[in-house]
């Protein structure tokens, strides 16, 4: 029973990480090898905010916003110039980026794992066993973030722009949708979601510079599942046609 609960909680976190990854892959055709690093950096930003005396929720917010901005910078500097090039180029670029970010974290924060204190330490009894409330909170929050993303994609102007761009970026541009800006926003949004999951998951595992790659592999598997989970949105539909 506990295993089942743990599985659900871990699954939710992976789904959150993976939906960011899928968003980026589905819309930009970029396999983001640095996604795990954004997740890890998000967790580190969280530890910094906590060390400065901020609350857990502040850490969650600051980490998401910081990584959103970092994501925008990364996209503008490394990915935008590669648009329309061989996919291998973006794979190499993001892979290189992941090495840089990993070593930056090692240099900045050192090799010793840091701990994020969970905001709730309470437990409840289930089948004669103690189970921490915090894990339940994680699962619920992850689900809420994904639901918010779904509603955003479904209803908001930017959501429609993102889906239109994913389905046919040439036609999207012809309808006046600022496609380059949509790409930047999507990469940032994916990064912010990774950062949020990093902070949420931080209390369950220590935060160190290898947090990213480890989760990336599992994230990769979850991605294939998440691609088909997202309803009526971009990734499952026919690939966008290139101008030709």
């Amino acid at each position: 029973m506990i295993q089942l609960l743990n599985g659900l909680v871990n699954g939710m976190i992976l789904a959150l990480v993976a939906s960011g990854l899928t968003l980026i892959f589905g819309i930009m055709d970029v396999v983001n090898f640095a996604h795990g690093e954004l997740y890890m950096l998000g967790a580190y930003v969280g530890t910094t905010v906590l060390a400065a005396g901020g609350s857990f929720w502040l850490a969650l917010g600051v980490a998401s916003v910081t990584i959103f901005c970092l994501g925008a910078a990364i996209q503008l500097v490394t990915l935008r110039p590669l648009l329309g090039r061989d996919p291998l180029a973006t794979i190499l670029a993001t892979f290189g980026l992941s090495l840089v970010l990993q070593n930056y974290a090692l240099w900045q924060y050192g090799p010793v794992a840091r701990k994020i204190q969970e905001p709730f330490t309470g437990h409840f009894r289930i089948f004669q066993l103690e189970y921490p409330w915090y894990r339940i909170i994680i699962a619920v929050l992850s689900a809420a973030i994904m639901l918010a993303l779904w509603l955003f994609l479904k209803r908001a102007t930017w959501g429609i722009w993102i889906r239109a761009t994913a389905q046919d970026r040439t036609m999207a541009a012809a309808m006046g949708i600022p496609v380059p800006l949509v790409h930047t926003a999507v990469f940032s949004l994916g990064g912010a979601m990774a950062a949020a999951s990093g902070v949420l998951y931080g209390p369950l595992v220590g935060v160190d510079q290898t947090l990213g790659p480890g989760s990336w592999w599992s994230g990769g598997w979850a991605t294939s599942a998440a691609r088909c989970w997202r309803p009526s949105s971009s990734a499952c539909s026919s690939r966008s046609r290139r101008s030709g």
């Binding site: 429609i160 889906r163 046919d168 040439t170 046609r241």
Partner: peptide
């Protein structure tokens, strides 16, 4: 025509 296939007519 290049209609966005998964978007509704309205979208």
């Amino acid at each position: 025509r290049r209609i966005f296939p998964s978007l509704s007519v309205w979208e």
